[in-house]
Each structure stands twice: as C-alpha cells, then as structure tokens.
Simulated scan of single mutants.
Amino acid sequence: MYKQIPEYCRPCLERLAKQAMGLACGEEPEKISKALSWLDELYDENISPPVIASELHRRVKKYCQHEDPYAPLKAKEIEIGQKIAEIYGKDFQKGFRERLLFSLLGNTIDFFRPPEEIEEVLKTGITLAIDHIAEIENHLKKTQTVILLTDNTGEVFFDIPLLSWLTDQGYETYYAVKPKPIQNDLSLPDLEKLNLKIPAKVITTGAEMVGLDLNYASEEFRRLYFEADLVLAKGMGHFETLSMKAQRNNIAFLLCAKCVPVARALEVSLKSYVVFWK
C-alpha cells in the first residue's frame, strides 16, 4: 500500500542523517558528509524509509560509539507526554474506543512537533479521517491475544489506559518495544529507566529499527506476531514497513499522517488521524 515519493522521502532522510550524526558526535562538516555518504549508499526508492533510516542510525551509533543519541529529545518527550496525559487522560477513560483514541493522540508527540499542537488537538477533540474502530471492536469478540506495537517514547503514558482496559477485559496483552534505543522510539532500556508499572506483558521485537521489518525480528517475536489474534501498530514507521508486505491480516494501524507520502497512501489530508483496519 505504501510507496516512497522520492522528492519527499529523500530530503526527509537527509535531514534525519544530519540530525542523527549531529546528536551522536557533533555537526562537523566531515561527520555530516560521512552520514550523507552512507545515505547515498543505502538509498533505494523500493525500500521503505524506516528501513533505510534504521541502518543509518545503526551506523551512526557505531561510528560515534553512542548508544542513545536521542536521549535528550526522548527526555523532553517523556516530560511533555506525562504532563499532558495526566491533564487530559481522565477524559478518555470510558471504554475501548475512548482509550484507543487517547493512545492514538499520543502519536502527535515527537521531536518534529511542538507540544502546543498536541494540547490544541486534545482541547478541540479528534476527528478520524479513517475510522475502523467498529471493525476492531467486532473482531475483539473473537480475540484472545493482542499485541500493541509501540512508537515514540513519550506515548507510553497514553498507552497505559488502553493496556489496562485490554488486560482487565481478560485479553492476553503484549506491549512490544524496541530492544535497544533507536531514534526516539520506545525501547526496553527506556521503560526500565522510567520504572513504570505496565499493565501488560512487556516484550521486545528483537529488531533494532524504526517501524518493523520482520526479517530483523527475533524468532520468538515473529512466532507471537503471527499467532496473535490482533495487532495494534502505532505510528507511521509501522505503517510504512508493515503495509508494504501482506504478511498477516487483523492488524490495525493507529497514526497521525505527518508526511505527504503516508497521507497520499492512505488518501487522507496531511496531519489526519487514522485508525485503519487491514
């Protein structure tokens, strides 16, 4: 379903390469040039941007000997996410739909967008450009196992109410995070530092990457992924990677379409919110 639009994806990856190198070991011209040379080597219009970005991040981390370059940005996201979730979370506690929408609202948080935009959405309410929540609710009637694939670190506070509801309803619920720090995505080390009580079974994908390419995932996670009755996949990275390969049905993508290629693939306006059932 998703396909690169080079005039948008290539410049975005260039900005990311510069940002990652700058955060990891400085913005000296020779270092930025090295990051861009890696992008020249890796770029392929037939490969989803998260896969390219993930390899870039791995090379930058190794070159700079820096395991978590995005730690300062993640700390800011965590502060913002916790504050906003505490203020507005009580308004989204009624049931599955409300808690799913609250989890989705957390996807507004990342280093590309100011916190004022998040609060504005929460104040005015969310309108879904694609709303397949009824289909998901219907599928839940014959579901036992649910996996929630996480996205940005600050979203964890928005996910907890949904996880609580699923667990309380008797679903075997898994919260899938990255095994190591990668970009600003939620990782197991991040959760361990936060010391939060997660009302679900925390697992890792085994894949040190943005989004999820199952070729990089652990055998244990792949088995669980295909056996689960329902997968809730948050963020554009999961949509960009998982929608390109028809590897399973019963997957719901929860995201804000923050870039033109993703918005076009979903046939929605830029910055639209989507719950897309596949």
Rank of each mutant, 00 (worst) to 15 (best):
P179L: 00
I203V: 15
E227A: 11
L149A: 12
G81R: 07
R59C: 14
E98T: 11
K141A: 05
F226M: 06
P189I: 04
S269D: 15
Q93N: 10
L140S: 13
G89N: 10
E98A: 15
A176W: 11
I84N: 02
K76E: 15
M244Q: 15
D151E: 08
E135N: 12
D168P: 08
L140Y: 09
G22W: 05
F112E: 10
E155I: 04
L212Q: 00
I109Y: 02
T124Q: 10
N152G: 05
Q144F: 00
F226S: 07
Q247C: 14
H132Q: 08
Y70D: 07
S187E: 09
E227R: 13
T124L: 05
L36A: 04
F239P: 01
W277T: 06
P49M: 08
I136L: 14
A176E: 10
K74L: 02
T108G: 06
M209K: 01
A257G: 00
A207G: 03
L105P: 04
R58H: 10
L186E: 09
T143D: 09
P199L: 04
Q19E: 13
K278A: 10
R97H: 13
L254K: 00
T153P: 06
R223M: 02
I160W: 15
Q82Y: 00
R59T: 13
L196P: 06
M244L: 15
F158V: 05
G106N: 06
E98P: 08
L140K: 11
E79P: 00
L186H: 08
W277Q: 08
R97I: 15
P161Y: 08
T124W: 01
A53C: 15
Y8K: 09
K62D: 13
P72E: 03
E135R: 15
N195M: 00
P161H: 05
L23K: 01
G125D: 02
I32S: 03
Y63F: 15
E117M: 05
L212V: 00
S164W: 10
I198T: 04
P115I: 01
E137G: 13
V268S: 05
G235M: 03
G26C: 03
P161W: 04
G95H: 03
S37V: 08
E192C: 00
Y63M: 13
S218P: 03
D168Q: 15
K197H: 11
H238W: 12
E172V: 13
T241E: 08
E220W: 04
K141L: 08
C9H: 00
K258G: 10
E155F: 05
A134F: 03
K258C: 08
F158S: 10
A265F: 11
